[in-house]
Amino acid sequence: MCSNADSIIVLDFETTGLSPQQGDRAIEIGAVKLHQGKVVDRFQSLMNPGFRVSGFIESYTGISNAMLHGAPSCAEVMDQFADFIQGSNLLAHNASFDQRFLDAEFELIERNYDGQFACSLLVSRRLHQELTSHKLGDLVSAHRIDNDGVFHRALADAEMTARLWQIQLDTLKVKYQISEPSFELMMKIAKTPKGAIDNLLRKQALRYQPQA
């Protein structure tokens, strides 16, 4: 498994609600595979949760019950997605949400994954403390990331998160001269208190300096 932070799978779920523990299910998965910062593959599918979604979810996501009626089952889609992500570390924006649904859907089909999970929202809160909001749409605007205005659809959000992640990696390179950071470092950044980030990264920068 590649440990570089620029070679990962970025994913996003659309769901029937906030909690798989309360019976909510995934209704769409979107993901992009990055290799050395470039998109080399994509995965996207609607999935039928086996019950009607609420009017609020239809309005919020733009995914209607009519669209889901002919979609493959969650089990079928998630089995394919399990194959897609093997051997890769994973990233999502507000990753705790997506990881809950990934784990819940995989548990239902007795599948698992071998990668670790990072969160671009937590990294943003630490690398860009000057920003007042770290919602994906607000970060897309703040960083002037090119987009087509589509949000709350899984593949579009995964694409935006991938571009945001690249900006975060570029920030490390420009501000701290950390080139090609490891995935482990990005997870460490996400868990470090905001006030300790600068000291952490200045120490880490010494490890990434080219050897004479």
Rank of each mutant, 00 (worst) to 15 (best):
A31N: 10
L122R: 13
S182I: 03
W165P: 08
D24I: 13
C2A: 10
T192P: 09
Q80G: 06
E107Q: 14
S182R: 10
M187L: 06
S88D: 13
P49Y: 06
N48M: 02
T16C: 07
K38T: 14
R52Q: 14
I8M: 14
D24C: 15
Q44Y: 04
L121W: 06
L131H: 15
L131E: 13
C2T: 10
M67E: 12
A212T: 10
T161A: 13
Q166Y: 08
F97C: 09
Y60T: 04
A154N: 08
R207C: 07
A158W: 01
S3F: 10
A190I: 00
T192Q: 15
N89Q: 14
A5S: 12
Q177F: 12
Q99E: 15
H128P: 00
R52Y: 08
Q36K: 15
F117T: 11
T132D: 08
L90G: 11
F84N: 10
F56I: 11
T15G: 02
I145Y: 06
V53N: 05
S45Y: 01
H69W: 09
D170L: 14
F117N: 05
M160E: 06
I57E: 00
L68W: 01
S45E: 02
G23T: 09
Y176H: 08
E107P: 00
G17R: 03
M160R: 07
S7G: 10
Q168F: 08
A71H: 03
D79P: 00
G87A: 11
S64M: 03
G195C: 06
G23V: 10
A118D: 07
E110F: 14
Q204R: 09
Q177I: 03
L201M: 10
M186Q: 03
K175N: 12
Q22M: 15
R25M: 09
R163F: 02
F151W: 05
I145A: 08
E14I: 03
